[in-house]
Amino acid sequence: ADVTKTAEVELRTILKQYNGFSADFSQRVVDSELNVLHEAQGRLKFKQPGLFLWEITEPEPELLVSNGETLWWFNPFIEQVSLFDASQAVAQTPFALLVSQDDETWSQFTIEKQQNHFVVSPKLLDQAQVIELKVTFKDTLLTNIAVVGRTMQVSQYAISNQVFADVDNGLFQFEIPLGTDIDDQRQLPKVVDGNVEY
């Protein structure tokens, strides 16, 4: 277990530096027979703790943004936004883990270091959709993220144009456009300033 501990400590120490980080990503999803199922482009922003923006720009826009309290998942294609508590964020998308400073959240995963990448796997594998999150660094610069699903489909994100610079907290908010269906999956719906609550 201490092997995991040192790997976890090392990974989390690196990630602490990602406190004001922006980059572009190019995603490619491949199935176990190496068919290319999906390709997309987008940009990401990280700020510790708990703030992240994951925006797909091509071929169809979709947006995940969290201000550390609420996670908005906006899907303009179906004119719907889903809201989650930040504590549910990691279950919704593994990227939330990269900005999490919550020991309890991290304790649900085992971390292993292999050469220049860290392999993060949920301890409760049987219900997990994501069985592996692989984060690759060149020294401490994030260069690749891979998400491995239960059906051995792999989503590779090549990271580029990495910039360490402060990101305004205002960017980690989401203004729900008029007419958007609201799918609120938060436990205790609270007033979120700036957003209409019913």
């Binding site: 199935d31 068919n35 999906h38 997309a40 995940l64 959709q129 998400v147 699903g149 059906t151 989503s155």
Partner: peptide, 23 residues
């Protein structure tokens, strides 16, 4: 979700995936 559809005559394969590539 994001779909991949491979048609081969009357046969086909179709998969629907989430934005992070989960089937």
């Amino acid at each position: 979700g994001y779909f991949y559809w491979q048609q081969k005559g009357d046969n086909f394969e179709f998969s629907l995936n989430t934005l992070i590539g989960i089937n």
